[in-house]
């Protein structure tokens, strides 16, 4: 398996990756999440021994990547779809990689077929669209039939069909019991594919937890109530022993742990008019943005705002694997 220990990369005075330590668990899809510029690509390049860490180590099956004999048979990676020689055909680009790791020639045909590039196998890869280049990159990752697969932002720039194809491919590979490490800056994308989450911001580890835990902690569901008789409704709910949070900004009440049906019936029994009765679910994207708000490299500022006053929620909780989310309603 892959283990990172105190992995650090500095470019001049900028620390791109800051003492990163985590393990990639076997047989599951691990989502590697972080805003743009968080250090995801740099980390992945160091995992493949392309960039030299300033300090710290990466071990693949207990070894340095450099010491793996025929590494493509252990780790397949798609870091940059365009990292091929455009003047060479798709087939020959894959053939030279296969030969370097003593992978049989017929495997080249197999992976080309798998990614649907057989028809253009003899064409020079510089004429390929981004989607086709991405498929070629994935073919190169699959060449050695590796147990571990790494993808850096594989859906970036793809059309919906391409995104769906990659998503299904990853699910299929995971179902075969392979270990998949995939980076993204989109929480929504990860929620669909990942079993485990590693979140970084400004090169630092922010969270390392199962996806299910993240969802449970962050997707608190509640019911929103709006009524012209709000004070009466509040008293009523208090009498019933139900905890209520007022949100003055929107003039609504938010209630945890009681179903919309129960609340509707309670209001009806006391003849209280309701203007709104809606079940709500906090989005994972919001939770992720709150988690990384402190560490986003470039904040977008609302017009007229001071540069040192980044637009982000006023209260940012401290996050970690053990953290229990509390939504600060009404703030």
């Amino acid at each position: 398996m892959i283990e990172l220990e105190g992995l650090t990369k500095r470019f001049g005075t900028t620390t791109a990756v800051d003492h990163l330590s985590f393990r990639i668990r076997p047989g599951v899809v691990t989502g590697f999440l972080g805003p743009n510029g968080a250090g995801k690509s740099t980390t992945m390049r160091m995992m493949l021994d392309l960039d030299n860490p300033t300090s710290g180590t990466v071990r693949v099956y207990g070894k340095h990547y450099r010491d793996l004999s025929e590494p493509l048979k252990h780790v397949g990676a798609l870091l940059d779809a365009k990292a091929m020689h455009g003047g060479r055909s798709a087939y020959n680009n894959l053939l030279c990689l296969a030969q370097s790791n003593r992978i049989p020639r017929q495997r080249v045909d197999e992976v080309l077929d798998l990614v649907g590039l057989t028809a253009v196998a003899k064409k020079k890869s510089k004429g390929f669209s981004l989607g086709m280049s991405q498929r070629l990159g994935i073919a190169s990752a699959l060449l050695g039939d590796p147990e571990i697969l790494m993808f850096d932002e594989p859906v970036n720039g793809l059309d919906p069909e391409g995104i769906l194809w990659i998503r299904n491919l990853m699910k299929g590979l995971a179902a075969e019991g392979r270990t998949i490490f995939v980076s993204s800056h989109l929480m929504s994308e990860m929620a669909l594919t990942a079993d485990h989450l590693v979140v970084i911001g400004q090169g630092k580890l922010l969270a390392d937890l199962p996806m299910a835990d993240f969802i449970q902690q962050n997707s608190r569901s509640y019911v929103r109530l709006r009524s012209p008789q709000q004070e009466r409704l509040k008293d009523l709910l208090h009498e019933a022993g139900i905890n209520v949070v007022s949100v003055p900004a929107t003039g609504t009440l938010e209630i945890d742990g009681v179903s919309a049906e129960q609340l509707g019936e309670l209001a009806a029994r006391h003849q209280i008019v309701l203007h709104e009765l809606s079940p709500q679910r906090a989005s994972l994207e919001e939770a992720f943005m709150r988690m990384t708000a402190d560490s986003v490299e470039y904040h977008a500022h609302a017009p007229g705002m001071a540069a040192d006053n980044p637009a982000r929620p006023a209260d940012v909780p401290a996050w970690g694997a053990a953290h229990t989310a509390t939504r600060k309603a009404g703030e």
Binding site: L48, D49, R66, P71, V75, A77, D80, A83, H85
Partner: peptide, 15 residues
């Protein structure tokens, strides 16, 4: 190898 970006693919295969 550098101008095409192939170097990263090459070195991942032959580290």
């Amino acid at each position: 190898e550098y101008s095409t970006g192939m170097i990263r693919t090459s070195l991942a295969a032959v580290p």
